[in-house]
Amino acid sequence: MARVSEIAAKVRSKNAGPFWLTIDIFCGSAEAFDRLRGALGDDRVARALGCAPAALKRFDIAELSVIKFSLPRPQVQGSIRDRDMHGASFANLVAELEIEDA
């Protein structure tokens, strides 16, 4: 077992406007990209982020070895229940997912 953060070069998250959150997994190599693409199913990522799988947008970009997820923000940015104004911490939920050995 290894965490996504141990396989990928970088995982970051950020607001894409006040109503969307976007998470970029920079895999760093074609090999890591293939491994993570296979292991990170939509259901699993959606569950980690607390959103419905149907609400998750996914982009597997082989040329950049990047997997990108976008989702409606769990709480609108800056609303009373929001805890993270810039959405920067959500990346950790994906970075800390455990991946089975290849």
Partner: peptide, 16 residues
């Protein structure tokens, strides 16, 4: 080419 194309990811819900 990598740093430039990767910037389309930034703060963008759809990179294309």
């Amino acid at each position: 080419p990598h740093t430039v194309s990767a910037h389309m990811l930034y703060e963008n819900s759809d990179p294309f």
